[in-house]
C-alpha cells in the first residue's frame, strides 16, 4: 500500500517533468517560431510606423492630448501598455456617476455640442484600459474640431475617419468602430 502510493508520486513527478518540456517549452517555442514565419507582423504586435518611426501598435490605444487629435476613451490604465486595467466601478457607484457627468460636460464644451449628444463610449472607461477604438458616433463628434485645428476641410477629415472605420466582422460580429490609433497616424 505504502509502496504503491510512493510509486504514484514518482510517476507524477516524471509525468509533470515530461509534459513541462512538451507543453511548457517545446509547444510555445514551436508556436512562436511558426507564428514569426507565417504572421510576423501580427505576432510582433501589429506595429504602426509614421515616417519609418514606430509610433504605436494598431491594437493598443494611446492617449492623445491636444485639440488637433482624435481622442480615445477614458482609461483606467492611462494607456500604460504594462498595466492593462478596467475601472471596476459598479453600475451605481457614486464616483463613477460623478466622473461620467464631468466627462460629458467637458467633451460637450470641447466639441461645442449639446451634452446629450456625447455618446456612451466617450464617457466610460474600457475593459482593458487600452481600447484603441471609439464608436463612429464619437468620431463624428470630433471631426469638426480636428478639421478646424488642422486647417483641413471637414470632408477630408471625414474621409480619413471613413478609411479607419471598421464595420461588424462578417456583417454581424461585434460592433462598428473607428481605430483612433491608425486615424491619428494618418493625420500625423
Amino acid at each position: 500500500m505504502k509502496g504503491k502510493t510512493v510509486k504514484q508520486f514518482v510517476v507524477a513527478v516524471r509525468v509533470l517533468l515530461v509534459f513541462t518540456v512538451v507543453l511548457g517549452i517545446a509547444y510555445p517555442l514551436a508556436m512562436t517560431g511558426l507564428a514569426q514565419v507565417l504572421f510576423p507582423g501580427n505576432a510582433n504586435g501589429s506595429i504602426v510606423k509614421v515616417d519609418g518611426k514606430e509610433v504605436a501598435s494598431d491594437l493598443i490605444g494611446q492617449q492623445y492630448d491636444g485639440p488637433q487629435w482624435f481622442h480615445t476613451r477614458p482609461s483606467a490604465a492611462k494607456y500604460d501598455g504594462k498595466a492593462s486595467a478596467a475601472s471596476q466601478y459598479g453600475p451605481n457607484n457614486a464616483d463613477l456617476l460623478k466622473l461620467v457627468n464631468e466627462r460629458r460636460e467637458q467633451i460637450a464644451k470641447l466639441e461645442g455640442v449639446d451634452p446629450a449628444q456625447v455618446p456612451p463610449d466617450a464617457v466610460t472607461a474600457s475593459g482593458s484600459g487600452l481600447d484603441p477604438a471609439i464608436s463612429p458616433a464619437y468620431a463624428a463628434l470630433q471631426v469638426d474640431r480636428v478639421a478646424r485645428e488642422r486647417g483641413l476641410s471637414v470632408a477630408d477629415v471625414q474621409k480619413l475617419v471613413q478609411a479607419n472605420t471598421h464595420g461588424r466582422v462578417l456583417g454581424f460580429l461585434g460592433e462598428p468602430y473607428v481605430n483612433v490609433v491608425t486615424l491619428n497616424a494618418a493625420l500625423a
Partner: peptide, 11 residues
C-alpha cells in the same frame, strides 16, 4: 453614461 459601456471594449 447612456449605455452599459463602462468596462466594455468598443469593438
Amino acid at each position: 453614461a447612456g449605455a452599459a459601456m463602462e468596462g466594455k471594449e468598443t469593438r
